[in-house]
């Protein structure tokens, strides 16, 4: 194993040609991850609450739509948004945005199910107690049910965000210069040490994913400590 190729391309892999050119590499991977994690979290929360509070008929329609997003590969959705959004609206959508859009939609679709399950997992008595002290349904949800449900949901949020980080690598397919794309570029430019390049890049992803996981566990433990 010869890692000199990594040393000579390290800056390029980490942040692309920035500050002289557009930001790329691992930095862009982080931006993509944080952006779509935030949007998917908001989407998942909103849709999950909608699933829990809506009428039977609306819930069936919503479930079917969300089911669609969970049935197709992320790659397919990226194709749809990347090639069809510009066609449909007649505007130029940058690749980064269309990838973020697809990742947020898929992440939101998955998260909404965990949010829905989390809300349903809260005992009926909590609702009844809240309503009987005169709170509205919205207030019970906001102040009684969600705080408890969110704590239960945190692990599935983390799992979803870890797969989001990994899925940002799919931006490669539409030529967005994030970490995987630049790695493939470095590899095809040199063609000498492919194993080293992809091992190194894999380790960067591994570090980011495990870091998130550790952080979440610590937060959870601190929260539980305070609750006691």
């Amino acid at each position: 194993m010869d890692f000199t190729i990594i040393r000579s391309n390290l800056a390029y892999l980490l942040w692309g040609t920035w500050p002289d050119g557009p930001i790329g590499g691992a930095a862009l991977t982080l931006i993509l991850s944080v952006g779509s994690a935030l949007v998917s979290g908001v989407l998942g929360l909103g849709l999950g609450v909608a699933l829990a509070m809506s009428s039977q008929r609306l819930r069936i329609v919503l479930t079917a739509v969300l089911g669609f997003f969970r049935a197709i590969p992320v790659l397919m959705l990226i194709f749809w948004t990347y090639f069809l959004l510009p066609l449909a609206f007649g505007i130029d959508v940058p690749g980064v945005l269309s990838v973020m859009f697809s990742l947020s939609l898929i992440g939101g679709a998955y998260l909404s199910h965990s949010v829905y399950a989390g809300i349903r997992g809260i005992a009926k008595g909590q609702w009844e107690a809240g309503l009987s002290v005169g709170l509205t349904r919205g207030a019970v949800l906001r102040h009684v049910v969600l705080p408890q449900a969110l704590r239960m949901m945190l692990p599935s949020f983390i799992n979803q965000w870890v797969s989001l980080i990994k899925d940002t690598s799919l931006a490669y397919i539409v030529g967005v210069g994030e970490l995987s794309f630049l790695a493939a570029q470095v590899n095809s430019r040199t063609m000498v040490y492919p194993a080293e390049v992809f091992l190194f890049v894999g380790m960067i992803y591994f570090t980011i994913c495990c870091g998130l996981d550790l952080l979440a566990r610590q937060t959870l433990r601190r929260h539980e400590g305070r609750a006691r």
Binding site: V162, K166, D167, T168, S169, L170, Y172, S180, A183, A184, N187, Y193, P194, A195, F198, L199, V201, G202, M203, Y205, F206, C209, C210, D213
Partner: peptide
């Protein structure tokens, strides 16, 4: 904890070198 895409590249480009 690493992307499938990177793993596929590793096996496709890396393994043939080894």
């Amino acid at each position: 904890n690493s992307p499938l895409l990177v793993q596929l590249f590793f096996w496709y480009f890396g393994a043939s070198a080894v």
